[in-house]
Amino acid sequence: MFHATLADLPDTVIDGLAAGTLAPYLGPGLLALCEGATPPAEPAALAAVLTAKVSVPGKIKHRLTAAAQFIENFKHRKTLVNAMNEAYAVAAVPSALQRWLAALPAPLIVDAWYDDTLRAALAEARADWGEVQGLSQSEHFGTWVGWYDPQGAVSPDPIEARTVLYKPWGGHVPAGNYLVSDTDFVEVLTEIDIQTPIPALVQQRRAALGFVFLGCRFNDQLPRAFARQIMKRSAGPHYAVLPDEPTRMEARFLAEQGITRIAMPLAEAAAALMASQPALVV
């Protein structure tokens, strides 16, 4: 299947985000736009942090999910969660783009990384939002997601907020929920084809939305699997800001999912978005 590549940010992306018909889908690359200290912003960096605290076999030292599984198996789940909490205790200052995104009328924002930065930007900007995070079956067997209000208090399922922040891999705040080990992901991927781990409200809202991927790479099976299932039955269109030449598997994924690649640096895309709607910058 053919998929388009654009060198500039289309008006349809700008207008769709501003109108709330396109939903931001954020990855760890967004942390590169933050000034000052930031927590680990890619799987390899996070694996290095975890294995600096707990010794793991060399052959899995650089593989995040395998290293996390070793720590969970041989040092207990609490040791893994504590190490993740320490890694993400570094609170990055939200970038201008994250503040811009937080002010959007988006029914849904997907944030597929563990940091608290977008949550902090939302908390600064407004009160009409709620959050839903993926839960590890090792700690919450039979319960796939947890809902939280803007103050971090546990809330009923679901929160009918104007904007729902969906963190499918969990997050540091408010409760240290993490999908990070092999077992965590196997449990979810076993059920995700039939959509069980994806909140019903997310499924309802995506039906009228397309997605704009910012700070995401698809050069690993996990981000592809989650994006594919979260996008399922969504209205489209879909776009991905991806300045680097896609790998063979990334190119195949973009084509299969009908995602238009925008081949421009994330910082340039951010500048174009904020220049188009400066009133949204908090």
Rank of each mutant, 00 (worst) to 15 (best):
M1R: 11
D8T: 15
D8Q: 12
D11Y: 08
D11S: 15
V13P: 02
I14T: 13
G16P: 11
A18Y: 02
A23M: 12
P24M: 03
L26N: 03
P28Y: 08
C34A: 10
T38D: 07
A41I: 09
P43I: 14
A47K: 08
A47V: 08
L50T: 04
K53E: 03
K53P: 02
S55A: 15
K59W: 15
I60P: 00
K61A: 14
H62M: 06
R63Y: 14
E72A: 15
N73I: 05
K75S: 15
T79R: 15
L80S: 05
N82Q: 11
N85K: 10
N85R: 12
V93C: 00
V93M: 05
S95C: 02
L97I: 04
A103Q: 10
A103R: 13
L108S: 06
D111W: 08
W113R: 12
D115S: 15
R119H: 13
A121V: 12
A125M: 06
D128T: 02
D128E: 09
S138D: 08
E139P: 00
F141L: 11
W144M: 06
W144N: 12
V145L: 03
G146F: 04
Q151I: 11
S155I: 10
S155E: 13
P156T: 15
P158W: 02
A161D: 07
A161L: 06
A161C: 03
R162D: 13
T163D: 05
Y166P: 07
G171M: 05
A175P: 08
A175E: 14
G176V: 04
G176P: 01
Y178H: 01
D182I: 12
V186A: 14
I194R: 05
T196K: 04
Q204V: 10
R205Q: 02
R205W: 01
V212Q: 01
G215W: 08
G215I: 05
C216I: 03
D220S: 12
P223E: 06
I230T: 11
G236D: 04
P237I: 11
V241M: 06
L242Q: 05
P243T: 10
P243E: 03
P243M: 02
P243W: 09
P246V: 01
M249N: 04
E250A: 12
F253N: 07
T260Y: 04
I262A: 00
L266Q: 01
A267P: 07
L273Q: 07
A279Y: 12
V281W: 03
